[in-house]
Design a protein around this nucleic acid. Structure first.
Lengths: 188, 188
DNA sequence: CCCATACCGTTGAGAAAGTCAATGATGTAC
DNA sequence: GTACATCATTGACTTTCTCAACGGTATGGG
């Protein structure tokens, strides 16, 4: 259902985590080279066989792939609102009631200040947020969501909750909580 | 130690996972607005206060931030080898002994075929991999690592293991295993 | 055998995202 | 008041992403 444009074919739970303790210092030499015509009828096509590769153990690979899949789906679902998760994150901070400055947004979202400028520009032009000069420091701008902005945020949030539910569909509620907790620990 | 160019300041374990069950359908309205001059000596600057925001619950935000931090550090550590995690992932598949085609690489790494071309071009030019036409399908090219390529891969792998150890330093061995397992489940 | 169709790698172009340096306005410390 | 730091902004540049097209190759049906 939905869009499903992604390339990932089936689901494949992937056993993983088994054998191969922590490190395999010596690179495995290609044992029998080709390994081609050996088993005739065997379908050797699945990409799951690369799960035994070193890269599949890499946290970078895992986070990248998980992120790519999730964001791709989420952005697709948000198309109706003409919004992207990137803009949502800024809007969400603006609607948080925490009165964030652009600098703080950039630091929290790990985005360059110049990127924040562009994102706030966009949201400001569509009337979702306002730039208010901080009276205590006239250099910084406090970004606050407008009525329309909060409305947009609420609608996007609902969509994103559904999207996350899809992205995390293979995880139990307990696992989802664990994942969030673990990611939070390494994200800061 | 090492480079540490990133923007993230301290460590801040972040308690998280506490309260706020699963969903808060209604968007929280800014209760007392400013909350500024209330407590005089209190430093209200920390960005940790945004952890209560909706965006901090988003799996997209968490994976993006975790990924950004990890990859940034890893790329920095790999500078000595003039390599990036992106290239490493291709090299790793080439050195896996699984004889991957470019199409398979792209599918597994969730990269566009055109990006694989560029990455393989790069690795081929520096003599790390070879393009071998698949005798069973002359359209596809099997990418195999050369001796020098396997050597480069081994060295990069050691560096990346250290980098991961740094990135995951706030997690116990058990938690690291959990995280990998959970990410793997949602990455495919 | 010939043909239509699908697939693989490659190229090219353009959008999106990330990185970095410089600047004007403002704040802070001396 | 002067020197220095900080914030938002702009601009340039690189990297990454996305998409469409094209030649060479495979596959299946007539």
């Amino acid at each position: 259902m939905s869009t499903s444009t992604d390339k990932v074919p089936h689901g494949s739970a992937a056993t993983a985590s088994a054998a191969a303790a922590t490190s395999a210092p010596t690179v495995s030499t290609p044992e029998s080279a080709s390994g081609a015509g050996d088993i005739p009828g065997e379908a050797t096509d699945g990409i799951d066989r690369f799960l035994s590769s070193n890269v599949a153990e890499q946290i970078h690979f895992l986070t990248s792939r998980a992120r790519g899949r999730g964001i791709s789906h989420a952005n697709h679902q948000l198309e109706g609102l003409d919004l992207k998760v990137r803009q949502f994150s800024v809007l969400s901070l603006a609607a948080s009631g925490q009165n964030p400055s652009q600098r703080e947004m950039g630091e929290f979202l790990a985005l360059d200040p110049s990127q924040i400028v562009a994102l706030v520009d966009n949201l400001e032009q569509r009337g979702a947020v306002l730039r208010e000069t901080d009276p205590r420091d006239r250099r910084s701008k406090i970004i606050v969501a407008t009525e329309a902005g909060r409305d947009l945020h609420a609608r996007a949030l609902r969509i994103l909750e559904d999207s996350e539910d899809y992205t995390l569909s293979t995880l139990s509620p307990r696992e989802r909580k664990q994942l969030r907790s673990l990611l939070l620990k390494i994200a800061f």
